[in-house]
Structure formats: structure tokens, C-alpha cells
Design a protein around this nucleic acid. Structure first.
Length: 576
RNA sequence: CGGGGUAUGGCGCAGUCUGGUAGCGCAUCUGGUUUGGGACCAGAGGGUCGUAGGUUCGAAUCCUGCUGCCCCGACCA
């Protein structure tokens, strides 16, 4: 490709509304353009990267025996009603009506459609297992799209769905997909981690997320310092190492005017956060709120007690049978009803509702709590003596230094971007949509199902998060929009440079390289800056300075310095 | 949806407090000089100041409503 024939649209200045580096660089390099909130156009340069990622994914999926298909983006409501997700999915599902006023949605995922195909197409256990995938645009009406293409509403996803006669076959494919995903991310050149994950709203038994390590990542990952244990902090179990000490202090009510947070409480009392307990009132399972806000069945609120230096883990909390899922905090009025005070002064003493304490909170002694009276707290509190022993559960996020749940080493917390997720769904959807097949004995068996996603467009952003410097993007060769760029110096004045550049351009193309010839009539500095911003991995400079000796200048995007090489060695140099 | 911010040529911003009819840098176009790290000179084009209303002789500026966008929380590939 000739740069003069291609749309290169770089900017020097960083757009004001781009927060993270990948978003800034994608805009500056002209990979994407924003259309509306969460909606981005892929410019020719950016699309080349998307296509390369797709190509790698496609190859590895095919290698793993998956079959590519393409399902409709728009799906009929009936299918979603059948699976129960028409109600369950909520406002993230973009719903629309056709001219006959029939209801549809824009697919955020395709379990329903694929299961419908499975139930119609699959006639015998002999056709199993089968793994179908597609690469397609999805739409999720995210509450808050952000970070450009990293969390957009419309995005490209590779989604695969497998069907099996039993769980063992499903596990086999699940493992195969795990292997295929590693192959994909290895080829792209990402520093990633497969981690144990909560299966979330999609449901099912087992799931593994693939995270690209990056500080801007929205997820916390807990990894062991010695073993290969890795889990999303949402999922990482906390191994309790504390024990309860004997009570030594007297229970004392103190004045704490204006104190609402643990921080303020520490300042006011001189206590450490680890000596304070925070009491969080959340809605319990009996809490049903009507349209007009009135409660039926009586308000049911549950108190969760966490040590002041710990964080509540929503996912763990909502798994508790008494806690409403999804987890929501009690409103101001219910707090007053239950605790006689406002949030910030709540404590577990004297509450007439269930009190569930995190393991470490339950092991505290001589601790500080809210007094259930505004502007007052109580110090020297002890379980069993001052209030009943609570029900104990694992409620908090794992933190740096916690022992690894597998018993080997401690946990380190790193940030990650979720680029892939594989699930053993089991029979959830096949049961709902009645997808079954006769087994060897002729008896109908409900299909076991797995699903496997990769956020193609998110991979592009994540790759940039991990590969950039002050001058711009540093693509790995496998997904770079172009592998090599030829930069002629002063071609307008030098026929020799011009001819040599053209010749090299031809030769590299014949060698099968994805090559860009920067034939724009620009000064060298501008071309260098552009090509570094765009992130082309290899740069070859053709100049009058070196041409008489039949030499060229080569520079790797990641190298500090350029080097002079023989014309004959270009291909070899690029390939090393 | 709740909280905070913001809206002025394609991009980044100033001007708003203290009303007087819009400016800077980058980018673009023309001509010239340049040509190994985002050149220089000369000239040019481009803005109903988000939108609707109000106050006023006069509104980018003051008031009110609406909308877009960004950031913080719940969601997820």
C-alpha cells in the first residue's frame, strides 16, 4: 500500500475526552472515530488490525475443530422469552419493533439462536460434539460505555457454542478451547493470564476468564506468588488466618460528630482501620419493592459486617441465601427503620435483623463499631460478650498478601482486561429450549452446552495498552496494520532514492510482506513521527546517504537506535 | 439511574466572574523557500459560541428549561 493512496489521519494533540492510553493512541493514530456514545467507526487503518486479530482467532478456532457460521444480529423476542432472558436481561438488551409491531432485540450474545439451531439440526448423538462459532457485531446497551472501544456498546465478538451428549465431552471441548485461546493470545503476543472466574449472569458451572495484564484494566486478578493459581478477585476465596483474641477493653460509647467513613473514624479514635468494623445494610431476599416504591412483604434487610480495611465482595455476598441478588444497598429509609440512624453510624449491636460477618470481622476483638445513633460510635466491642456471635461467611475481596487458596504462597493482586471468557454452561439453555438428542440406547438426552467468547475489538485496545511508548503504538508483527514501512528521504529531489524505494517496495511485496511505502511528499521528521505513532514494527529508510554503497537503514519500532544494513539483508533483518 | 464536570471553526484551548457583536495554537488551502526527527515566509478559507426560551438598547458572557459528551459507582467480551 502506498501511503499517498491510503487515509492516514494522525493528530499531534490528544483528544481531551480520552482517558486511557489505548483510547488516546487509537484516536491519534486514526484507527477509530467516535460516532456517538459507545459507538465507533473503524477507519481503514484500524480495520486492518481488527482483520488480523480475526484471522488469528479464525485459524485457531478452525484448528480446534470449530465450524464457522454467521447468525442474525437481530433476534425475535419469542426465543428470549422461551429462555427467560427477555425479562432477566434487563435494559442492556436493546429491544426494537418491526413494522408489524413484533418485538426483536439486537443480539448481545447468541445462546438462544444457537440452541434453536441445535434443537432443529441435531438428530443424533452421532453428530456430537459440535462446536459452532461466528465473528460478529454485538450490541450491549452498557450503562456507562467508556475507554473507547474497550467498553463500547457495539463491538465485535467471536462467540463459539459447543453441544455434547454428556458433561465429560463438554469438559474435553472446554479444555480444547482453553488451549486454543492460549494459542490465540500467544500469537498476538499478549501478556495474559487465564483465571478462575465467577460465571455471572450467563450461568453454568465452570468458567475461565482470559485477562490481558494492564494497569488500566477494570478487573482485579489474584495470583499466587509460587503456584499457578489465578482467579478474579470476585471469585478468589479468602483463607482466614486470624483468630479471635480475648476481650480486654470495656465497651464505651464515644461522641464522633461528623464521622461517617472508616477513615474519619480512624482519625477521630486513633484506631487502625483493621480495628474498626463496617456494618453494611443490604436488601434481603424478602424485600420486594413495587413500582411506586412501597414495599410488600415487609422490608427485609440484612447486616453485613466487614473489617474496616477490607472491601465487600458483591458476588460473594449475593450468593448468601439471605441476600438479594443482585446485591443492592438498603435505602436511607430502611436504614432508619432498622438502625435508628443514618448510614455512617450503623453498628451490629442490638439489630433485630440477621447479622452476617466476614471471617476476619468475626475474629475481631476490642473493636470499634457504629452506635446506631448519629454521631456516636462504640469502642471496645467484643463478639459473644456485647452481642451474639454472628453467622460467619467469606464476604470480602482477597487482598495482596492473603494466603493463596491452593495453599501455596501468597496472593498478589494485578489488574487485567478481560478479553476472553469460556464457560461450561451445562444444560441451562438446552433445557429451557428443549434441545435434546437420542443417545445410543435411543433415549433422549438434553444437550450439554459450552460457550466461548473473545472480544475482538477489545483485544485491539488491550494490545495497545500493553505495547506502546511515548511516540505511539508498538504493534506486534502478527496484528500490525502493516509489517514494514519504507521511508524514502527526499524522494522528490532524488531519482535514485525514488527508484530504489519503488524497487524495494516491489520486492518486499513479492516476498509476501504487508508493506507500506510512505510516498507522501513530506519532510522526514513528519513521516518518522507518523509511522511511530501508527506503530509499524519495521522501518526501512532509503536515502542518498547510503544508497551509493548499496546500503539501507533499518530500525525496529522497539529499538533505541537505527542500524545500517546491506540492501541484500533487508528481508533477513525484518525476519529476525 | 445517582453524584461531579463540561459544551466556543476539524482538533486543543482563551474569552464568561465585570454584557459592547469572537481570538490563539495545531490542522486545511494557495504561492515561495526548505528537506534525516512533527520547517519557515507571505496570503486565504472556515464558527447561527450545544439547543430553546427569557432579561437587556445590546448576550459566548446574566437567568430558566432541554440535550450531548466526559469522569466516579452497578454491567461485561
Amino acid at each position: 500500500m502506498r501511503a499517498s493512496q491510503f487515509h492516514i489521519a494522525t493528530t499531534k494533540e490528544t483528544p481531551a475526552d480520552a482517558e486511557i492510553i489505548s483510547h488516546q493512541l487509537m484516536l491519534r493514530a486514526g484507527l477509530i472515530r467516535r460516532l456517538a456514545s459507545g459507538l465507533y467507526s473503524w477507519m481503514p487503518l484500524g480495520l486492518r488490525v481488527v482483520r488480523k486479530v480475526e484471522h488469528i482467532v479464525r485459524e485457531e478456532m478452525n484448528r480446534a475443530g470449530a465450524l464457522e457460521c454467521l447468525l442474525p444480529a437481530v433476534q425475535p423476542a419469542e426465543l428470549w422469552q422461551e429462555s427467560g432472558r427477555w425479562e432477566k436481561y434487563g435494559p442492556e438488551l436493546l429491544r426494537l419493533h418491526d413494522r408489524h409491531d413484533r418485538e426483536f432485540c439486537v443480539g448481545p450474545t447468541h445462546e438462544e439462536v444457537i440452541t434453536d439451531i441445535a434443537r432443529k439440526e441435531l438428530r443424533s448423538y452421532k453428530q456430537l460434539p459440535i462446536n459452532l462459532y461466528q465473528i460478529q457485531t454485538k450490541f450491549r446497551d452498557e450503562i456507562r460505555p467508556r475507554f473507547g472501544v474497550m467498553r463500547s456498546r457495539e463491538f465485535i465478538m467471536k462467540d463459539a457454542y459447543s453441544f455434547h451428549i454428556d458433561g465429560a465431552s463438554l469438559s474435553q471441548t472446554f479444555d480444547d478451547m482453553h488451549t486454543a485461546y492460549c494459542a490465540v493470545f500467544d500469537r498476538i503476543g499478549l501478556d495474559y493470564r487465564p483465571v478462575d472466574a465467577d460465571s455471572g449472569s450467563i450461568g453454568g458451572a465452570k468458567s475461565t476468564e482470559f485477562h490481558v495484564l494492564a494497569n488500566s484494566g477494570e478487573d482485579g486478578l489474584a495470583t499466587s506468588t509460587v503456584s499457578d493459581y489465578a482467579a478474579n478477585v470476585e471469585k478468589a476465596a479468602v483463607v482466614c488466618t486470624t483468630t479471635r483474641a480475648d476481650a480486654t477493653a470495656e465497651q464505651t460509647v464515644i461522641d464522633t460528630p461528623g464521622v461517617h467513613t472508616i477513615d474519619e473514624l480512624c482519625k477521630a479514635t486513633g484506631a487502625n482501620a483493621s480495628q474498626c468494623a463496617k456494618t453494611l445494610l443490604v436488601n434481603g431476599v424478602g424485600m420486594n419493592t413495587q413500582e411506586d416504591g412501597s414495599a410488600v412483604d415487609g422490608p427485609k434487610v440484612v447486616a453485613l459486617v466487614i473489617r474496616g480495611d477490607h472491601e465487600l465482595n458483591d458476588i460473594k455476598a449475593e450468593k448468601h441465601p439471605l441476600v438479594q441478588s443482585p446485591l443492592t444497598f438498603a435505602d436511607a429509609k430502611s436504614i432508619r427503620d432498622v438502625a435508628n440512624c443514618d448510614a455512617g453510624s450503623i453498628g451490629p449491636i442490638g439489630l433485630s435483623i440477621p447479622v452476617i460477618a466476614d471471617q476476619d470481622a468475626a475474629n475481631m476483638s476490642d473493636f470499634v463499631v457504629g452506635a446506631n445513633e448519629n454521631n456516636k460510635h462504640i469502642t471496645g466491642v467484643n463478639w459473644a460478650r456485647d452481642l451474639p456471635d454472628p453467622e460467619v461467611a467469606d464476604l470480602r475481596n482477597a487482598i495482596e498478601g492473603d494466603p493463596s487458596p491452593d495453599g501455596q504462597g501468597n496472593l498478589t493482586i494485578v489488574r487485567g482486561v478481560e478479553v476472553g471468557h469460556i464457560f461450561e454452561l451445562g444444560t441451562t439453555y438446552s433445557e429451557a429450549l428443549k434441545a435434546s438428542v437420542p443417545d445410543e440406547s435411543g433415549k433422549n438426552q438434553t444437550l450439554h452446552m459450552g460457550c466461548y467468547g473473545i472480544g475482538i475489538t477489545r483485544v485491539v485496545a488491550a494490545a495497545i495498552e500493553q505495547n506502546h511508548d511515548n511516540n505511539g503504538i508498538q504493534w506486534t508483527r502478527s496484528i500490525a496494520p502493516f509489517e514494514v514501512v519504507i521511508v524514502p528521504i527526499n524522494a522528490a529531489k532524488s531519482d535514485a532514492v525514488k527508484a530504489a524505494s519503488e524497487k524495494l517496495y516491489q520486492e518486499l511485496q513479492e516476498q509476501g510482506f504487508d508493506v507500506l511505502l510512505d510516498d507522501r511528499p513530506l519532510r522526514p521528521g513528519v513521516m518518522f513521527a507518523d509511522m511511530e505513532l501508527i506503530g509499524i514494527p519495521h522501518r526501512v529508510v532509503v536515502s542518498d546517504k547510503l544508497l551509493p554503497d548499496n546500503k539501507l537503514e533499518y530500525r525496529n519500532r522497539r529499538a533505541e537506535e537505527s542500524e545500517v544494513i546491506d540492501y541484500a539483508d533487508v528481508v533477513a533483518r525484518i525476519n529476525t
